[in-house]
């Protein structure tokens, strides 16, 4: 298999050093059915103040990549490198990793119904998050800050909601609480793992607006994990598409949306519902993603790809820079050097 280390530096990206740098990150789960290779060598940079969307179907490895970065996977073999401002996170001692989590890199999770502790008040949970990194903060100080944070995530009557239990809040409000927890310690990077998937459509837009506002106001680096390209358009500067544990395309949002290079990205974009084509059958990519237990030979997308040729099933393509983005596809971007 040919592996080519193409640095995924995007066209038009900020020139600063990346704040989060993933290099050849691999995650393998030991399952009853054998090793499941969930992430197979992902390299990605996140620069200060930018929003990167990681897109893919369920099981493409996008969440696992980020969970592995923060050491939140139990019983998984993680290799490769993930550095935060030069500090290697993979294999970092739990006592030191703890000071990165929540304080430098924070995370918002998918389901606000289950991500808050049902038997503790919102204020108590915020209090614990603050004290985890500022053990000297007084109850009074954490309380005042909790109210302030709830106010910042646009929760009305913040002081009263502070004493509420999660079950007394709506799904949207719980996700706002989750976001308040995530920004409580002023992190530089916020990873949002499908933050709107479990919410009502009307609430989804509000939560995305909130994340966008916080990102701008606080100069946050936002990593937005989603399967919904519709969410990406307004929220992200750059886009990374994952399939079967690998990046298959990345580039700036405008260029990828205008000219998707990889057949999979094209398929995803074609799946977006469009108001100008009403009455037509909603497009879908035929087939299902391969199981990480038994990946097909060559390009993992080949079995579902409309453009696939025989060569696709022989070699797994590597990331190659094109005029508009970087893609891994033997047909549309044949590797310049094949040894």
């Amino acid at each position: 298999m040919i592996e080519q280390a193409v640095a995924p530096v995007p066209t038009g990206a900020p020139t600063a050093e990346p704040i989060l740098r993933l290099r050849d990150l691999r995650v393998t789960f030991d399952t009853v059915g054998g090793p499941a290779r969930a992430v197979r060598g992902v390299s990605l940079d996140v620069f200060p103040g930018e929003a990167v969307a990681v897109v893919g179907e369920s099981g493409s490895g996008k969440s696992v990549t980020m969970l592995a970065t923060l050491g939140l996977l139990r019983g998984a073999a993680v290799s490769g490198s993930a550095t935060y401002r030069g500090t290697e996170l993979i294999g970092l001692a739990p006592s030191r990793l703890r000071h990165v989590r929540g304080a430098k890199i924070s995370m918002v999770f998918q389901d606000p119904m289950t991500s808050l502790n049902p038997v503790l008040t919102v204020g108590r949970q915020l209090d614990m998050v603050m004290r985890a990194h500022n053990p000297d903060m007084s109850k009074k100080a954490t309380r005042a800050r909790a109210v302030d944070l709830l106010d910042q995530v646009a929760i009305a009557q913040a002081a009263r909601r502070c004493d509420a239990y999660p079950h007394e809040l709506s799904g949207g409000m719980r996700q706002r609480v989750m976001i308040a927890m995530a920004i409580a310690n002023e992190p530089e990077v916020l990873i949002a793992d499908e933050p709107t998937t479990a919410l009502d459509v009307t609430v989804q837009a509000q939560i995305m607006d909130l994340l966008g506002r916080l990102q701008r106001e606080r100069q946050l680096s936002l990593v937005l994990i989603t399967h919904d390209l519709g969410v990406v358009a307004g929220a992200a500067d750059r886009l990374a598409v994952m399939y079967a544990g690998k990046l298959v395309e990345h580039g700036t949002v405008p260029s990828v949306f205008a000219e998707p290079g990889h057949p999979y990205t094209r398929g995803l974009l074609a799946c977006l519902p469009r108001l100008d084509r009403r009455g037509e059958m909603q497009a879908a990519i035929p087939g299902i993603p391969p199981s990480p237990l038994s990946l097909p030979p060559g390009c993992p997308f080949a079995p579902r790809c409309p453009d696939a040729v025989t060569a696709c099933t022989e070699h797994e393509p590597v990331l190659v820079r094109t005029a508009t983005s970087t893609i891994a596809c033997s047909v549309h971007a044949p590797a310049a050097v094949v040894r």
Partner: peptide
């Protein structure tokens, strides 16, 4: 999930177990 969230927020393992 809330245990994973607590860990993701950087809480001490002792706090995660005892308080959550």
């Amino acid at each position: 999930e809330y245990v994973r969230v607590a860990r993701a927020m950087g809480l001490r393992e002792r706090t995660v177990v005892n308080n959550h």
